[in-house]
Amino acid sequence: MRAIHFPLADRLILTPMEIIPMLRWYPVYAAIVLIFFGAHSTAIVFRDAFYGGAPFLLLGLVGVLAGAFITPVFLPVIPFRAFSLKGWIAGLLAMFLAMKLISAMPVSLMVFTWLFFPAVSSFAALQFTGSTTFTGMSGVKKELRYAVFAYVIAGMASLVSLILYKSGVL
């Protein structure tokens, strides 16, 4: 019998398989962020776009890397077997560290940050199931049943928090 293992070197080599496809969407994400923060009722203010959007450009990158790089590298030591949970935990830890570099932000944006980016990390980590040597289709299907539901809820709540921020409520 030839037993298959999944050592650190193999996991590391495979990380670009998920990082590159996800980062292809990064310019789109960056454009949305800059427009969101720069757009006002009367004009687009580039200063607001940059200063308001810069932290979220960083957090977006951190969110993807937490799920698509950190999670695969530390796969055996991150708690739980489900990749979506591993990615979510990595995302929460990454946000905790990244937020130390970012100045205070309104409550609505704080809520958005803690809901949206760990969910991105979780999704990115779940994609890594396609690169492993030990995950099976039935398990991934089971994970997707609750993960997709959680992503939709997190996405909707994130959207509401952005609307509240833009409307000046929170």
């Binding site: 994609q127 396609g130 099976g136 289709m137 991934v140 994970e143 997709v148």
Partner: peptide, 15 residues
């Protein structure tokens, strides 16, 4: 055994 592609992207595509 029900074998098949075990990655999330593939299963989401199938959905």
């Amino acid at each position: 055994v029900t074998s098949g592609v075990g990655c999330a992207s593939a299963i989401i595509n199938g959905m």
